[in-house]
């Protein structure tokens, strides 16, 4: 019976710890910054646990001990007093040493984090909006500057510098598997350096409450080998694919005539709005509406037909479209690979 209980307990712990793994976990680090922080978390937790157990024991022991019967309870005992004083002094000294030690550890970890991007070759501007991320790849050649949304492709194994700012309220950029969080503040530029050791997809999340759809403000860091990353950048720089088929052509026409064109940009067409996500290659992204829906024809239609049902309060309005019009626009957007 006892054996069964311990097996059940071990299984429960294993399942519980499984929740710490995955593409969005500070306890499952995939980059140097996150590894540094994870080590710090475990060391702090471990040391504080030891201190807590010692303090509890020190409190429990006198409670358990029987007080000795003195013949003269009020008599002064100089030896006992100095013993107690010594114990308190040692405890105070240890506390000071531990606190100073933890502070120093934290300080040196911070220095390591700051040094990660000192030789970053790639700079990406990340601008927070309610409730999506605008991503702009900087380049010395203006024609190679690239604007996209919500998904940040980076070369694996290379440090990348992120310049964080916001246009409306304070957001916070947090990809737990790669780095700590840093705020995006309107009118101010914050710098965060990240590095992914291996190719993979890491999920990030806005970590500062920013309004109704704060929870649905996700981002994805997609780390790829350098060659694949360069190919991706070159693909994204191309203007949008011309629509093929009558339905998609009608969709492009409708996109340019209806409210879509007021906010969104599609490279290679007159649509040039910059206040909403760039849709030039929208179908090449994995998700819609900042990680709210996976990319598919059905989800595209659902999002356009009723954005206020999918993401209530978002700045995408409900647009009055007939079924045929909706299908045509979706057919067009689906082709924007």
């Amino acid at each position: 019976m006892k054996r069964l209980a311990s097996i059940a307990f071990a299984t429960a712990i294993a399942l519980f710890l499984q929740g710490c793994a995955g593409w969005q976990s500070a306890l499952d680090p995939k980059g140097p910054a996150a590894s540094e922080l994870a080590w710090l978390i475990w060391f702090f937790t471990g040391l504080c646990a030891v201190v807590w157990v010692l303090v509890m024991a020190a409190l429990a022991v006198p409670l358990m001990m029987r007080s000795r019967q003195h013949a003269e309870p009020l008599a002064l005992d100089a030896g006992a007093d100095s013993r107690k004083l010594r114990v308190v002094m040692v405890a105070v000294g240890l506390t000071a040493v531990i606190l100073v030690g933890l502070t120093l550890l934290s300080f040196f970890a911070n220095r390591t984090l700051a040094a990660i991007g000192s030789d970053a070759a790639l700079t990406i501007r990340v601008t927070g909006h309610q409730w999506w991320w605008e991503v702009r790849y900087e380049d010395a050649t203006p024609s190679r500057i690239l604007t996209t949304a919500n998904e940040i492709h980076i070369p694996a194994g290379e440090p990348v510098r992120l310049l964080l700012t916001s246009t409306d309220v304070i957001h916070s950029f947090w990809v737990p598997s790669l780095s700590g969080k840093l705020d995006l503040i309107p009118g101010r530029m914050n710098v965060l350096d990240i590095k992914a050791d291996k190719p993979g997809v890491y999920r990030g999340q806005c970590a500062e409450f920013c309004g109704a759809q704060h929870a649905n403000m996700g981002t994805f860091i997609i780390a790829e080998p350098r060659a694949k990353f360069d190919a991706w950048w070159n693909d994204q720089l191309q203007p949008a694919a011309a629509p093929t088929g009558d339905e998609a052509k009608a969709g492009e026409n409708l996109f340019l005539k209806r409210p879509c064109v007021m906010c969104h940009k599609i490279g290679g067409t007159p649509a040039g709005g910059t206040v909403a996500p760039d849709l030039t290659h929208v179908a090449s992204r994995q998700t819609l509406a900042a990680g709210t829906l996976t990319m598919s024809r059905g989800n595209l239609a659902a999002w356009i037909a009723d954005p206020q049902g999918v993401k209530p309060g978002s700045h995408m309005p409900v647009v009055d479209l007939s079924g045929d019009e909706l299908n045509a626009i979706v057919a067009y957007l689906e082709g924007l690979k």
Partner: peptide, 8 residues
């Protein structure tokens, strides 16, 4: 007309 939804 048609460029901005009526509510907006």
């Amino acid at each position: 007309r048609d460029k901005i939804p009526d509510d907006q």
